[in-house]
């Protein structure tokens, strides 16, 4: 069974005012097929954790480790991490001018599989996945994320999740900016991916509404760069009712 394990992770960024500590000892373990939700106030370091796992160069790991089935992820380049089976659905997917969605998907699939997918079945698979996410066919011919609405960008992230079939996926606020119908469609896409591949999920969210469609096995409360409390799905409801007040000490910035 695959395991993604984060141990005592400390991460900083360089700012104009100097080095800023963001993650201050994060511990987390996700097993294949499990769904973990991370909730926490703005600025507590949730995206930092997501980007650090994916290997964004802006974040400096000061200490700790991230392992995938025992292999040190921190020693891998960004693309090696993806090829090892990690996927990050980004909070703010970037536009890539002049690169068509269809070409991008095929290039990514080829890179991950080590060989180009057979054309016909691949096109069929892409079209099927787009249809299931209610994405118009014309998206294939558009440049990646260029001029996409916020919700369309999120669907495009989940389209990639379904087609690229990672072992572990981090969804960074994929639910933010989705209308009620889109939330359901996107959640179904995530559930399909989990059923078909036994995906391990780390779901970063501010809202319990997505957790009605994607049931978490564990909920982690993230405050000031570390996990402050862990529990089952009921913890999410409690957070929604009570907010984060009881976790905020005077050392953390609200």
């Amino acid at each position: 069974m695959s395991v993604l394990s984060v141990k005592d992770l400390h991460v900083s960024v360089e700012t104009e005012q100097g080095t800023k500590q963001i993650l201050k000892g994060v511990d987390l373990e996700i097993k294949q097929g499990e769904t973990h939700a991370i909730m926490g106030p703005n600025g507590s370091g949730k995206s930092t954790l997501a980007y650090t796992i994916a290997g964004h160069p802006k974040y400096h790991v000061e200490s700790g480790s991230i392992t995938l089935d025992g292999a040190e992820v921190l020693d891998m380049s960004i693309d090696e991490r993806a090829r090892a089976g990690l996927f990050l659905a980004m909070q703010y997917p970037v536009e890539i001018p002049g690169v068509k969605v269809a070409d991008f998907l095929r290039t990514a699939k080829t890179a991950l599989a080590g060989e180009a997918p057979a054309l016909r079945p691949w096109i069929k698979e892409v079209n099927g996945a787009m249809k299931a996410l209610r994405m118009d066919k014309t998206f294939s011919d558009r440049n990646v994320n260029e001029g996409f609405s916020g919700g369309e960008k999120k669907r495009n992230e989940i389209l990639q999740l379904e087609l690229l079939k990672p072992r572990f996926a981090i969804l960074d606020e994929t639910d933010s900016g989705l209308d009620v119908d889109a939330l359901k469609i996107v959640s179904e896409g995530v559930n399909r991916a989990q059923e078909s591949t036994g995906l391990g999920l780390l779901l970063i969210t501010h809202y319990t509404r997505i957790l009605r469609y994607i049931t978490p096995d564990f909920v982690h409360v993230f405050v000031d760069g570390r996990v402050a409390e862990e529990g089952g799905p009921e913890l999410a409801d409690r957070l929604e009712n009570e907010g984060y007040d009881r976790f905020l000490t005077d050392t953390s910035v609200a």
């Binding site: 994916a54 290997g55 964004h56 160069p57 802006k58 380049s77 960004i78 693309d79 991490r81 993806a82 090829r83 996927f87 990050l88 980004m90 997917p93 970037v94 536009e95 890539i96 001018p97 002049g98 690169v99 991008f104 290039t107 990514a108 890179a111 991950l112 440049n143 990646v144 990639q160 690229l164």
Partner: peptide, 26 residues
């Protein structure tokens, strides 16, 4: 644009290939 390169690489595309895609796209 580092963010563009990161996005492509995070999908398994090598750095060299990502650069190539970005330039040709541009």
């Amino acid at each position: 644009d580092d963010e563009q390169l990161f996005y492509l690489q995070a999908r398994g595309i090598s750095e060299a290939e990502a650069r190539r895609l970005v330039v040709i796209g541009f």
